[in-house]
Design a protein around this nucleic acid. Sequence first.
DNA 1: ACCTGAACACCGTTCAAGT
DNA 2: ACCTGAACACCGTTCAAGT
Lengths: 186, 186
Amino acid sequence: MPAVAKTSDREIVAAAKKFVARHGHEALSMQAVADAVEVRAPSLYKRFDGRDAVLRAVQREAFREFGAALEREQGTGSASERIRGLATAYRAFARRHPRLYAAMFAEVEALDDDDLAVRKAAALPLLRALAPLVPETTRLEIARALTAFIHGFVSMELSRSFRLGGEPEPAFERGLAALLHGLQTG
Amino acid sequence: MPAVAKTSDREIVAAAKKFVARHGHEALSMQAVADAVEVRAPSLYKRFDGRDAVLRAVQREAFREFGAALEREQGTGSASERIRGLATAYRAFARRHPRLYAAMFAEVEALDDDDLAVRKAAALPLLRALAPLVPETTRLEIARALTAFIHGFVSMELSRSFRLGGEPEPAFERGLAALLHGLQTG
DNA sequence: ACCTGAACACCGTTCAAGT
DNA sequence: ACCTGAACACCGTTCAAGT
């Protein structure tokens, strides 16, 4: 006699993502998700392999949203203005969803092909914006250097690692300008 | 009747640090530390307020070691060669102690004055190396931009976030060179 | 086919009782 | 003064039993 489904993959991921956005990925528990979708915790194991699988599903959703936010930023202007726009959109996403952004980089046990696909997709807008500016041979290196700077800056900002006074703002502007200038002349 | 002390703050921190270096900070438990120093877990609470306090003590030790490694790098050569040396020493420390490096940035409940002091001390070598190169008014910004790049790069490298093929090495060299060049001309 | 209670092996933490 | 066992409220996860 088939028991009626009280929830779904989609609802579970949405509830988990909402919880992570509010309380952080460290606090994510199967109990909390189960409560939110009104089943008992063991029922979640019919749909997800465990906490790690739920967290990875949240990460996939977050990377999709993040990638979409960057895609939306494909505005007009020069190539280097477009890159600035992407950097700003990147930082804005992280500041708007700080706990979700942190969760995107939480360690998980193993990434499957879907996990890798959404991560790679989020890297494409920057690579496209760099295309008119730098040759294909060095494009990936330059994208990595830019991403390292933006990710590092945003991570330090969100974890309040800038403790020597002053605003972080000018350091972001200066670093970005220096990289854009140096990467073209280098 | 005073009971004999079976352990000490020092021994507990050393055991916890060793555990974190081996298994990562997420796996750190009071039980594991207690086993290592041969007491029962509740005894640890006579010396530390809880898991968070133990983890913060590990972070302090790690930041001290890290700062000392950077101090040691105060070699000869031009200012920008010294900065390159610091960046390389930074990255080398993170690669030599990947789990300890990750643990240094683990979220903890609240930092006390000692926590802040060791973090600030670790930032000084770079600020000193920048002194002959850039005026005091922009030095902190520039240090932050450099640190953001190095930390971001190392974090991505250690979490295997570079998944589009090729070696990370040239991206580090290129980004660092671009920043050093751009920061001086900007 | 999906849901559940009960159970297991863990956590962090508190506290009364020992010496 | 420090250590301990017992206990409490949690975890993640498994599984037999329900419908």
